[in-house]
Amino acid sequence: MGLHLETTKAGKPPENIVGKILPGGRPVRRLVRVGSLLLLAALWEALVRTEMVSAFFLPPPSRVLASGWAMAQNGELWRHLAASLGRIGLGFVFGALAGILAGILMGISPAAEDVFGPVIAATYPIPKIAIFPLLILWLGIGEWPKVTVIALGVFFPMVINVRAGIKDADPALIKAAVSMGSGRLAVIWKVLLPGALPMIFAGLKLAIGIALLLVVTAEMIAAESGIGFLILSSADLMQTARLLFGIALLSVLGLAFSGLLEALERLIVKWK
């Protein structure tokens, strides 16, 4: 009897034991995570309030937020945000679509790989922003050079990931599909593409970071709006609170994008 009780007690998973040594379950851990961010902000605020650091060079979080609130009120924030999001959106969609198509083509056709492979290998290492001045010469000062440079930045990680994902397809699955009467298109659409989806998402997550980097850089070089423009123009006018708000906005955007992509991945790649 006693022995029986012993075994039922020991039947608990070992995580519980670990959980007792390191205090806190999942809700507690989440609280700690949020708390660490708040603590940093509080420390920063205190540092400036006690005048250990100049509020001019490092405005406290309260002032950064206040300047953001003011920009939201007068509409400036939305204008810059919309400009940047529009550029990222267009560039990302064009670049990702082109990258996926080229990646599929190179994955299924050795001829396409021979033609495009060397070109891609030669252009991939070029920092895309280096082409930006040339794009301005070609396309004029407008939205298109910015959209194009983002599309280029997104294209490369996509084409490389998709190509690898397609090439990595399990030959047994292709064989099975063909044995059930699938033609070339059906094999691409129903076997190769679903199989490459995890790699496509890996590429998208990589690409969104690049897109964010490029939109800010391009806006700092030639733009009248956007988060990059907001940051640079605030620096020119020594408006450090606005500047820091622009930087914080980038952090929020980056988190939002990767969160969105991860949610989308969980929705689509259900079998992992």
């Binding site: 399990d170 047994a172 699955l173 064989k175 099975a176 599909a177 044995s179 059930m180 009467g181 699938s182 059906a186 129903k190 076997v191 679903p194 199989g195 989806l197 790649v269 259900k270 079998w271």
Partner: peptide, 22 residues
Amino acid sequence: FQELALFPWRTVARNIEYGLEE
């Protein structure tokens, strides 16, 4: 097939459905 070659992204029912779709 020896490897079975089930499509990992399809459920049991959808795997069986594949040939019927084709």
